[in-house]
Simulated scan of single mutants.
Amino acid sequence: MRIAIVAETYLPLVNGVTHSLQRVLEHLVRRGDEVLVIAPAAVGANDVDQRDGVSVVRLPSVSVAGYSDVRLAVGGVSRVRRLLAGFAPDIVHLASPFELGRRAIRAAEQLGIPTVAVYQTDVPGYLGKYGVPFLEAWAWQRVAAIHQLATLTLAPSLSAARQLDAHGIPRVELWGRGVDTTRFHPGKRSAAFRAKAAPNDEVLIGYVGRLAVEKQVEDLAALDNIEGTRVVIVGDGPEREALEAVLPNAYFTGFLGGEQLATALASIDLFVHPGELETFCQTIQEAMASGVPVVATGRGGPVDLVDPSRTGWLYTPGDLGQLRRHVVDLVGDDAKRAAFAEAAFQSVQGRTWPVVCELLLHHFECAIAEHALLARR
């Protein structure tokens, strides 16, 4: 297949969108598909380059206020249309479309190319967290306008699918995310990591993710003084300094990737994610693959991933007392925590990236067939 991927964010920025894209691209290259990535320009990246067998074209961009590493592509529809026309893809894959995606879907429509739009980031919800809730309605209008034009929209969770349905977006199918069960594995547990993070043999309560307002990491302050435990924060971001102040007893590792991240996840005893705006939450799957039970907010993507009383617990959003009680329940009972850990590990063994990527290709084929059918009518 010839596949054009239009990415709202791309490497070197590391986030959920870019992580998913890299796994998809690896799969497409192994299959021998021809792929073009169109993405915002990034500091230190060439405008046109070849990365791991994939052609990447970067468009002029500006930084987002407060996030110097997050770039927003600027320009009109015509540039994107020329790129798509020159590549002549069978399908256009829109990764978390918002601004660049808006232009790309209009360009694809003008060229008569089928599109699959992947809803992955709750941009309207983010605006509320950043103190501009009056822009949420506008943002949903933008999101709906994009997805209503798409041949097919893919939602990562039932919660996200319901959200899209509530805003009148048709033709929605589920497409989750894979997890690398070789990289993330209980066997990566490290005595050396634990010696640094738990010098007094504490039970380690871990979080992995960007340290940003929308992740609500400050809620973990409710856990910072549980006897015999220590909070571990893996990640970096604009909120780190503030979080170090509200979590004075926590162990901050900074950003970790590759094997270092796998080691950290396997070396904690309990994973906690307080974010309420997760459309999926990939780090929950990675923790489970590492043999770690999970406590997460009962909203969004985590609801699909955590099986209460078996692989972890879900707590009522905003109820930090309940969050603390669920954590205390597991850190205080080694046998229960071990049983939850084993169930969590088993629950993700069939969700490998090759399986998930093949499902994505099936969605591509369905979109191409549907587009051809509509064109004949």
Score class of each variant (00 low, 15 high):
64 V>R: 06
64 V>D: 02
64 V>T: 06
65 A>T: 12
65 A>I: 13
65 A>D: 10
67 Y>L: 12
67 Y>N: 11
69 D>V: 11
71 R>S: 10
71 R>G: 06
72 L>Y: 06
72 L>Q: 14
74 V>S: 02
75 G>L: 09
75 G>R: 07
75 G>V: 07
77 V>E: 14
78 S>E: 14
79 R>G: 02
80 V>N: 01
80 V>Y: 01
82 R>N: 13
82 R>I: 04
83 L>G: 06
84 L>K: 00
87 F>V: 06
88 A>L: 14
88 A>I: 07
90 D>N: 05
90 D>I: 04
91 I>V: 15
94 L>E: 02
94 L>D: 02
95 A>G: 08
95 A>P: 08
96 S>T: 05
97 P>C: 03
98 F>D: 04
98 F>R: 11
98 F>Y: 15
99 E>G: 07
99 E>I: 13
100 L>K: 11
101 G>A: 08
102 R>W: 10
104 A>P: 01
105 I>H: 00
106 R>W: 11
110 Q>Y: 02
110 Q>C: 02
111 L>M: 13
111 L>S: 10
112 G>I: 09
114 P>G: 10
116 V>P: 03
117 A>H: 01
121 T>F: 07
122 D>T: 02
123 V>S: 05
124 P>F: 06
124 P>A: 08
124 P>M: 10
125 G>Y: 14
125 G>F: 15
128 G>K: 01
128 G>N: 00
129 K>W: 08
129 K>I: 05
130 Y>Q: 05
130 Y>N: 04
131 G>T: 02
131 G>M: 04
133 P>Y: 13
133 P>C: 14
134 F>G: 09
134 F>K: 13
135 L>H: 07
135 L>M: 15
136 E>D: 00
136 E>Y: 00
138 W>E: 12
138 W>H: 12
139 A>T: 12
139 A>R: 11
140 W>Y: 11
143 V>A: 03
143 V>G: 05
144 A>I: 08
146 I>D: 10
147 H>Q: 11
147 H>Y: 13
147 H>N: 13
148 Q>S: 06
149 L>R: 15
149 L>E: 14
149 L>A: 14
152 L>F: 07
154 L>G: 07
154 L>M: 10
156 P>G: 09
156 P>N: 07
156 P>I: 08
157 S>F: 09
157 S>A: 12
158 L>D: 13
159 S>R: 11
159 S>L: 07
160 A>M: 03
160 A>I: 04
160 A>R: 01
160 A>T: 05
161 A>R: 15
162 R>C: 01
162 R>N: 12
162 R>Q: 10
162 R>K: 06
163 Q>R: 14
163 Q>A: 08
163 Q>W: 11
164 L>N: 03
164 L>H: 04
164 L>G: 05
165 D>W: 11
166 A>V: 07
167 H>A: 07
168 G>H: 08
168 G>A: 08
168 G>E: 05
170 P>N: 03
171 R>L: 06
172 V>T: 15
173 E>F: 01
173 E>P: 00
174 L>N: 01
174 L>A: 02
175 W>D: 04
176 G>W: 02
176 G>S: 15
176 G>F: 00
178 G>F: 00
179 V>M: 03
182 T>P: 00
182 T>I: 14
183 R>Y: 06
184 F>C: 14
185 H>A: 10
185 H>Q: 09
185 H>R: 13
185 H>G: 04
185 H>V: 08
185 H>C: 11
186 P>C: 07
